[in-house]
Write a protein that binds this DNA or RNA. Structure first.
Lengths: 232, 232
DNA sequence: ATTATTAATTGTCAAAACGACAATTAATAA
DNA sequence: TTATTAATTGTCGTTTTGACAATTAATAAT
C-alpha cells in the first residue's frame, strides 16, 4: 500500500457565521463552546470534519444539529489555517456564512446547545480567530449581496419591500433612498406581489411579496447591481 | 495537556491553477506529478501544507519552488474535500488560482520540474479532481475579471490596449467591440499612456501603457463593470 | 512620391440606467 | 371630517451603455 510518508496530519473543522435579521438589525447566532479549551466562551457554530463527509457536509450537519434547520443557505468563505490559530493542536477551519430566517430558529430553539442571537454590532468577544471570521463574513456578505439577490434568504416567505429595504440598509450600513430602492427591486422581476398586506408597520400597510422561485434560481448567478453609488 | 481526542486527522494540500497569456490564448501551467500514485501524469502544481505554514504560505512556496517566481497574484478559491478525492489517503486540498506573466516563467524555466504551458482548451486530462478545479478556476477568473482589474497581472509591465482586448476576449470567450473596449478601459483611469509604441502588430502601431500602481491598489476592491452585456 | 491597405484610435448618438427629489395614495387616529 | 403617517408611484436631468462610423498613423505597393 502506497502512502504519503512523513507528511503532517491536521484536524480540519468548519465554522459557520450564521446571519439573521430581526426586522431591525442584523444579528449573528453564537453558541457557548462545549469543549476545552475556552469552554463556555462564546464562539461560532462549528465542528470537526468527520471521516466520511466533506467540509460542506460537515457545515450542514453542524447547522442541522445545532439549529434543527436543513437546506440553509450556506456559502464557503475561506480557509483559516494559521499554524497557531488553535492553541491545543493544529486545526484548519473552513469558514462558512449562513443566512437564515431568524424566526425559523427562534421557534426551533432547543436547550441542547446554549445558542443566542446577538446584534452584529454588540456581540461578545469570540474565541480564537472567530472575530476575524465574523469581520470577513460581513465583508463577504456585503459584497455578495450587492450583486446577487441573496438577502431574501434572511426574510420569511412573505415579506414587504420596507422590510427588505431596512435589511439592505443594515447589511450595507448606509441609507438608501426608499423610492429608488423599491423601483430597483421591482425591476429585477424576482418578486411576486401578493394581495395581502402587512398592517403592523403603518396605517396604509405594505403589500407582501414572495420570491419568484424560478426567476430567482435563474438569476442567482447574475450580476444585478443592487446597491446605489457602490464603492467597495 | 488538553487535546481533541478521537478526531480524525487529514493531510492538507494546496493546488494552484496557474494562468498565463501568450498574446493569443489563455494557458495553464501543468507539471508531471513526481510521486505515486499517478506518477508522471499531468497535474496542477501542488504540495502539502507544512507544519509551520498556512495554506497561503504553502501556495506561495510551491509556486516559488516550481517557477522561481515570487509575489505572484494568488487567490484562494475553495477547498476540495470529498472524502475519496485522493485514493491513497484522505487529503483536503485548498485550490488557488494564480495569474502570471507567461514570459517571466519562460525565462525562468528550469529542469527540476517538468512543467509545461497548455492551451486552456487543449490540455491533457489531469489527475484526481484537478479537472474540476480548472473548470472552477476558469469560472472564478471570469467572474472576478468582470468586476476587478486583475487581468493586467497576466501582461508584461508594458502592454497595449489591443493585447488587453484579446485577453479579455479569451477569458470571457466572447467578442468585445474594440471601440467600446478601449474607451471603457481608459475610463477606469488605471492606465498611464507611454510615448513608446508597439509596432509588431500593425503598421500604425499601438501605444504602450503601464498600470498606475497607486490607482490600481486603490481600485483593486472596487466594482468596475469591465464586461459589456454581462450575464454570468 | 502617391496610393492602397491595415489596424489603432477617436467620435456619434439613441436608449437605458441611475439617482436626486416630489407628489399621491391608502389607511388609521384624532 | 381632517390630520397624520408610511407606502407607493412619478418626474426629470445626468450619466452610462453599447451599437455603429469616421479618422488617423503608419507601412507596403505602385
Amino acid at each position: 500500500m502506497i502512502e504519503y510518508s512523513g507528511q503532517p496530519h491536521y484536524l480540519v473543522a468548519v465554522d459557520c457565521i450564521v446571519f439573521g435579521f430581526d426586522g431591525e438589525h442584523l444579528k449573528i447566532l453564537l453558541v457557548k463552546r462545549g469543549l476545552e479549551p475556552e469552554i463556555n466562551k462564546w464562539s461560532l457554530m462549528g465542528g470537526f470534519v468527520g471521516a466520511d463527509e466533506s467540509p460542506d457536509d460537515a457545515a450542514n450537519r453542524v447547522l442541522k444539529k445545532m439549529t434543527g434547520l436543513e437546506g440553509v443557505y450556506l456559502e464557503q468563505m475561506q480557509i483559516y489555517g494559521e499554524p497557531k490559530r488553535d492553541p491545543i493542536e493544529r486545526t484548519l477551519s473552513v469558514g462558512y456564512f449562513a443566512l437564515i430566517d431568524i424566526h425559523k430558529y427562534e421557534e426551533q430553539l432547543n436547550d441542547d446547545y446554549e445558542a443566542e442571537w446577538f446584534l452584529i454590532n454588540d456581540r461578545p468577544k469570540l474565541i480564537f480567530d472567530h472575530n476575524e471570521m465574523v469581520a470577513d463574513a460581513r465583508k463577504k456578505l456585503r459584497y455578495k449581496a450587492a450583486l446577487h439577490p441573496i438577502l431574501f434568504e434572511m426574510l420569511p416567505k412573505k415579506f414587504t419591500i420596507p422590510q427588505l429595504h431596512i435589511l439592505f440598509e443594515e447589511v450595507n450600513d448606509t441609507k438608501i433612498d426608499t423610492r429608488n430602492f423599491s423601483r430597483k427591486i421591482s425591476s429585477t422581476g424576482l418578486l411576486i406581489k401578493l394581495t395581502e398586506k402587512d398592517r403592523s408597520g403603518s396605517k396604509k400597510g405594505a403589500f407582501y411579496f414572495k420570491l419568484d422561485k424560478k426567476k430567482y434560481a435563474a438569476n442567482a448567478q447574475a450580476f444585478l447591481n443592487l446597491m446605489p453609488n457602490l464603492k467597495v
